[in-house]
Simulated assay, not measured.
Amino acid sequence: MSKITRATQALGKAGIAFTLHSYDYDADAASIGLQAAEALGIAPRRMLKTLMAEVDGQPVCVVVPSDKEVSMKKLAVAFAGKTARMMRPADAERLTGYHVGGNSPFAQKKKVRTAIEAAALGEATVYLNGGQRGLQIEIAPEAAREALAAIAATLTE
């Protein structure tokens, strides 16, 4: 597995400190994020999943703990919108340039507005997808928020 992805290159170029972790990706897992947390032996609240959604028809990136579900109402409010819905996987892949299970919030093909779960900012470090299946980036949550120019909001139930 290559440890050089668009995500790792972008963070390196920006001078942002991170650590890479590889694990055996299970395509049949009920929850990719929970499987990654278990494989790496970390609390699910520290393993953040990257989801693509639409708020009032505009694409957005949503970063939340792997053991939580996004509230569409809270997501819409975070972006001052009226409605939110999850993006179809094929549309998300086309927009980000990443495959489902390897979708990183960093260095997506098209830059979109991003929101990160505010509770995640209280962790010492969090894990985000490194741009391919089986690769996670461990990073300080505030560094991730800054790198993504993300807003922090309560996004989960």
Rank of each mutant, 00 (worst) to 15 (best):
K3C: 11
K3Y: 10
K3T: 14
T5Y: 02
R6D: 13
R6T: 07
R6C: 08
T8R: 02
Q9N: 14
Q9W: 01
Q9I: 13
I16P: 03
A17K: 13
H21Q: 08
H21Y: 15
H21E: 08
H21S: 08
S22N: 13
S22A: 14
Y23V: 11
Y25E: 02
Y25S: 07
Y25G: 08
D26M: 02
A27K: 13
D28I: 01
A29G: 11
A30F: 07
S31D: 12
I32K: 02
I32P: 04
L34T: 09
L34Q: 15
Q35W: 00
Q35Y: 00
A36H: 05
A36C: 10
A36L: 00
E38H: 14
A39K: 07
L40P: 14
G41Q: 10
I42P: 11
A43Q: 13
R45Q: 12
M47V: 06
M47Q: 10
L48C: 04
L48V: 06
L48F: 08
K49Y: 11
T50Q: 06
M52S: 07
A53C: 12
A53N: 01
E54T: 10
V55Q: 06
V55Y: 04
V55K: 02
V55F: 01
G57C: 06
P59G: 00
C61N: 03
V63L: 05
V64K: 04
P65L: 07
K68T: 13
K68P: 01
V70M: 02
S71I: 03
M72T: 05
K73S: 15
L75Y: 03
L75D: 04
V77E: 15
F79S: 03
F79A: 02
K82M: 11
T83M: 08
A84M: 06
R85V: 12
R85W: 09
M87N: 09
R88L: 14
R88A: 15
R88F: 10
R88H: 12
P89K: 04
A92Q: 05
R94P: 00
R94V: 10
R94C: 03
Y98M: 05
H99Y: 04
G102L: 00
N103A: 12
N103Q: 14
P105M: 10
F106H: 02
A107H: 04
K110S: 11
K110M: 08
R113W: 09
A115S: 06
A118I: 13
A119T: 13
G122A: 13
E123V: 04
E123H: 14
T125R: 12
V126T: 08
Y127C: 05
L128R: 01
G130T: 07
G131E: 07
Q132H: 09
L135I: 09
A140M: 12
P141T: 01
E142D: 15
A143L: 03
A144K: 00
R145F: 00
E146Q: 15
A147I: 04
A147L: 08
A149I: 00
A153P: 09
A153C: 09
L155E: 06
L155D: 02
